[in-house]
């Protein structure tokens, strides 16, 4: 009887572990994600999102070497945690706390170079299990693209994220940026239109809107549609204040100057 009970408990754990681990050898392939998600949903229901969210937080935990970094302004040079104001973490109040501090690592640490790949499983699983977590999608894609130099995988994550989150304008924005670097102008145009449509009426941040219009304009320009490009450039300029200076503004202004006579 006890063997059966133990086996049942272990099966439940196995099921959860499988769910948490995302037991699918084709994890890198977003196309099968929903199939797995369906199976997992049948197994642990809405807990998939919770597990996914936990795994996303786990990635940050791993980034800090398994230490819970609650302190945003830590002094990175020292063992122990000192915030930017110089206040030390409180001294242990009893021998139990003192011993725990000695057993647990507490130093602030970031993964270096090759170590960062250790976060990959959690990014992969987080977006699998909680596809509606826009932050997880964006962060995973960012790390895949910028840190791990895997733009194709990042694009796959963003493509799927776009389908799973029809209300998110940030995802097509990031994908547009990626495609922009690839000089895939047709895709950039499509994605920028998508992002602009989704952002309408929403409280999007100014610099994102500037980027969006800029890439939209550049792609239209590359596709040989100067009038539309000019309109987009002018839209981008419209977000700057009169006295505001930036390299991007200068670049946009140069484009407007270049295109204005041709458009006429």
């Amino acid at each position: 009887m006890k063997t059966i009970a133990l086996g049942a408990a272990a099966l439940c754990l196995a099921g959860s572990a499988f769910a948490a681990a995302g037991l699918d050898s084709r994890l890198a392939s977003p196309e099968t994600g929903f199939t797995l998600g369906g199976s997992l949903y049948r197994l642990i229901g809405g807990a998939t999102e919770a597990v996914g969210d936990t795994l996303f937080l786990k990635a940050e935990f791993y980034y800090h070497g398994g230490v819970s970094a609650d302190y945003e302004n830590d002094d990175h040079s020292r063992e122990g945690l000192v915030d930017a104001r110089g206040a030390r973490r409180a001294e242990p109040t009893d021998w139990i706390e003192r011993l725990n501090r000695r057993v647990r690592a507490h130093a602030h640490y970031h993964l270096k170079r090759d170590e960062k790949k250790e976060m990959l499983p959690f990014f992969a699983l987080a977006v699998r299990l909680d596809p509606k977590n826009v932050e997880a999608v964006l962060t995973s894609a960012y790390w895949l693209d910028r840190e791990f130099k895997k733009p194709r995988d990042a694009a796959d994550v963003l493509e799927k994220g776009m389908r799973d989150n029809p209300g998110s304008w940030e995802i097509p924005l990031r994908l547009a940026e990626l495609r922009f670097r690839e000089k895939n102008h047709a895709a950039v145009e499509r994605l920028c239109r998508e992002a602009l449509g989704r952002a309408a009426g929403k409280d999007a941040e100014r610099h994102h809107l500037i980027d969006l219009h800029f890439w939209f304009a550049e792609s239209l320009h590359a596709l040989g549609r100067p009038a539309e490009a000019l309109s987009a450039y002018r839209s981008a300029l419209g977000f700057y204040g009169d006295e505001e200076k930036s390299l991007l503004r200068d670049r946009i202004s140069a484009r407007v100057t270049e295109l204005a006579p041709a458009a006429v």
């Binding site: 699918d24 890198a28 990959l120 992969a124 895997k150």
Partner: peptide, 8 residues
């Protein structure tokens, strides 16, 4: 099984 998983 977990050891056989591939991540990108």
């Amino acid at each position: 099984y977990a050891a056989g998983m591939d991540f990108y």
